[in-house]
């Protein structure tokens, strides 16, 4: 065993990177669910975002445009879900699952000509003085802009939900769509916008994997990250900061367990491998012992006539 081989600064820095895709996708799904819609298609939207972003980056040479197109791609796919569930009043669970399958297939088709290509690398945000600080510079100030965007998104979603009128309306729609409708709020319109926001976030999260974390395109490369994001929202009791905590825990322990393995720590590998899942769930479940509960209208179909 040689724990000195593990560099804590690099470990914490890679924690932020490993957490970012599920964090961004999770915060998007949180908004969707707070509006009363259960979209199980996160995985499908992530992988679609991953390939849209990858294609746009290869074609234009600009990672910034890549991320923009990833968000657009995810949002476009989520619009399909919105059409099914908000206009055609289809079952949300079935539509969400279908969206995942469709997204996986669509991305495989789109990505056929892109296997083995290398995207231009996304520049790291090298903040002159700050990133030179020993330890903290490496941990906090030596990342690409998307890492900071993810954290900013959490703060923004939290603030909007808690302090603004828009947030209040969104929560009202999620808690009791009939009452919100009676008050004159456009339930369907609000939900469609929330779904698109969720899609855009999922797309960004997916593109983070294909453009920065791995960086390459491989079919099915999100490999379940969308499902992790989805679970994170539930275990975080639909609270933004807990999604952040959960994502960091999950990302952090994933990286930590690989580090411990490489350093030859004598903990059975099976236990190390399942630790990210177990610890994240346990911590978040303990935290949700307060009176948190799901939005009351979550997953229910709304029609103005009923």
């Amino acid at each position: 065993m040689d724990l000195s081989a593990i560099n804590p600064a690099l470990l914490l820095a890679s924690l932020l990177v490993a957490a970012t895709p599920i964090l961004i996708a999770g915060i998007g799904e949180l908004v969707v669910e707070r509006a009363g819609v259960l979209n199980l298609g996160v995985e499908g939207m992530m992988i679609t975002g991953a390939i849209c972003g990858f294609m746009a980056t290869i074609i234009t040479g600009s990672p910034a445009l890549g991320f923009l197109f990833a968000a657009l791609g995810g949002a476009a796919l989520s619009l399909l879900f919105a059409l099914l569930t908000q206009v055609a009043l289809a079952n949300q669970v079935a539509s969400g699952l279908a969206l995942t399958l469709f997204g996986l297939g669509l991305s495989a088709l789109l990505g056929q000509g892109y296997v083995g290509l290398k995207p231009p690398s996304t520049p790291k945000l090298d903040i002159p003085l700050l990133s030179d600080i020993p330890f903290f510079g490496t941990v906090l100030f030596n990342h690409d802009i998307i890492v900071y965007l993810g954290i900013a998104l959490v703060a923004a979603v939290w603030a909007v939900l808690k302090f603004t009128r828009v947030g209040l309306v969104l929560r009202a729609v999620g808690e009791n769509h009939d009452a919100a409708h009676a008050l004159g709020y456009k339930v369907v319109r609000i939900r469609v916008l929330a779904i698109m926001f969720g899609g855009a976030c999922a797309g960004l999260g997916g593109a983070y994997i294909s453009l920065i974390r791995v960086p390459q395109w491989t079919e099915g490369m999100t490999a379940g990250a969308g499902w992790i994001a989805l679970a994170l929202v539930v275990f975080a009791s639909w609270k933004p900061w807990r999604v952040l905590l959960g994502a960091w825990l999950f990302g952090g322990i994933t990286v930590l367990q690989l580090n411990l393995q490489a350093a030859g720590v004598s903990i059975p590998v099976e236990i190390l491998s399942m630790s990210p899942y177990i610890i994240t769930i346990v911590v978040l479940v303990i935290m949700s012992a307060d009176k948190s509960r799901a939005p009351a209208s979550l997953g229910r179909i709304f029609h103005a006539s009923s």
């Binding site: 490993a18 974390r213 791995v214 390459q216 490999a223 990250a225 994933t254 990286v255 690989l258 490489a262």
Partner: peptide
């Protein structure tokens, strides 16, 4: 891929 990349980085 993401996990394989993480393992390689570690």
């Amino acid at each position: 891929p993401a996990k394989e990349a993480d393992a390689a980085k570690v």
